[in-house]
Amino acid sequence: MISIQGLYKQFGKLEVLKGIDLEVEKGNVVVVIGPSGSGKTTMLRCLNILETPTKGVISIESQTLDFSGTVPKKNIAAFRRLTGMVFQSYNLFPHKTALENVMEGPVIVKNENKESARKKAQTLLEKVGLGDKIDYYPVQLSGGQQQRVGIARALAMDPKVMLFDEPTSALDPELVGEVLKVMKDLANEGMTMIVVTHEMRFAREAADEVIFMDQGVVVERNKPEEIFTNPKEERTRKFLNMIQ
């Protein structure tokens, strides 16, 4: 359903992604781990076209972008709508309430009718456990609540894939659980997800597959129980020892 082939990304002289190949089945949850600077964020940002890959082909469902040539803006906009992005620092719109944050995309981008968008936004906020906070501004919410609004905002666009970039690493430890629970529920509903995280419990409980990245390449991929108990590559083993 998602396929990445030969994805390269360079910032000036710095080559960050050096040929990533990855396939993700519909409904699967893939957790991406790897040391700082290995290119995890960059890979997610390339999938959301927040960064333009230097070369490579990415496709989601029937849409394909080939970055060896120039890609029309229109195709990028259409492609972007297939993915929902959840940021480490939430990036909620501070001048809009939780409800308005969630409604923004459907109303402005999809030209949905305001009333139905409002209802849908409300349902989504209830789903992430914030039914009683819909009229709050981001400053009035805790980090965990803000991140759940962030998830609802991404879901409101009906993405085919949800991308999470360390969604809990800016949170106080006691707030991590509420966000992970929402993510697990999503996974159980069959959402296709790519999650960069260091929450190993989440990886064990929710991931279909774990990918270990280092220095811009995928070093190893396997089922969570396999990769955690019996890593095949030396680099993976070292990394796992370091973080556990």
């Binding site: 959301n48 927040l50 906009a77 972007r80 709508r81 993915t83 929902g84 992005m85 940021f87 620092s89 990036n91 909620l92 719109f93 501070p94 001048h95 923004e104 995309g105 402005i108 981008v109 999809k110 905002r153 991404a154 409101a156 666009m157």
Partner: peptide, 30 residues
């Protein structure tokens, strides 16, 4: 205005002018 605001707008499919008008300028106005 933090760069993340542009990115959040783009990530939900907004265009440059939509992000500018609806997300950035209101915050810049304050």
């Amino acid at each position: 205005t933090p760069k993340g605001q542009w990115e959040a707008g783009y990530s939900i499919g907004m265009s440059y002018s939509q992000v500018l008008r609806r997300i950035i300028l209101p915050q810049a106005a304050r």
